[in-house]
Amino acid sequence: MNITAFSIYAMYIVPPTVLIPIVFALLNFNHLTKPLKIIFWYLIFSGLFNLVALVLISMHQTTTWTLHLYAIIEFIAHSLFYSMFFSKKKRNIFMVLMVGFTTLCVINYFFIQNKIEFNTYTRPLGAIIIIAYSLLFILKNQNDEKSWGDNIYNWINAGILLYFASCLFMFIFSNYLLESPDISRLVWAIHDTVLIFEYSLFAVGFYKCRAQQTISSY
């Protein structure tokens, strides 16, 4: 695979795959529960964000600064999603984490990592917290009365865990990868492949939500 092929894969094939879960969500929109709606709007944001990034790339502008904003929205969306599975009292902890993380991102953007660098301090931190959310979710649901596949949130959670755990290394070493943009495309291609897995798992979750809505309490 040459560099052009990597670029086509990363720029034209992977970004539209976000439409797969979005289409499934739209088809079942009336049956979407609150947590699923959060994921749906996050996907819409993610798709638009990718579009903006592609436009900036076509105009030969740097896009790294946009990731600072993306990290905040991504973290808030995931925190809101997981907070839905916990009691109101415990949701305050999620609120504190959201406010704390946003503050850290702002400080990092203005004072620590400048506009042309990746946010390699805050994004991995966000990813680690999201992985912790995901593991807590698994712990909470391990005595589920239903089969694993029948719980739609298991599919969403599997997608999130798979993406953030697999891409954690990449988030940490993003700035090293900037040193050689051509070869770094290989790493981004792996990232994009994991992203397709995540979107596919989200799509299964959205597809199954119609059957589950009668028994869901969220």
Binding site: L161, L162, A165, F173, L186, I190
Partner: peptide, 19 residues
């Protein structure tokens, strides 16, 4: 570094899938 990151990602991916 690229190979190390790619290996790390692939390894974690497999680990998570197995988990």
């Amino acid at each position: 570094i690229f190979i190390l990151v790619a290996l790390g990602m692939a390894g974690t991916f497999l680990l998570v899938v197995s988990f």
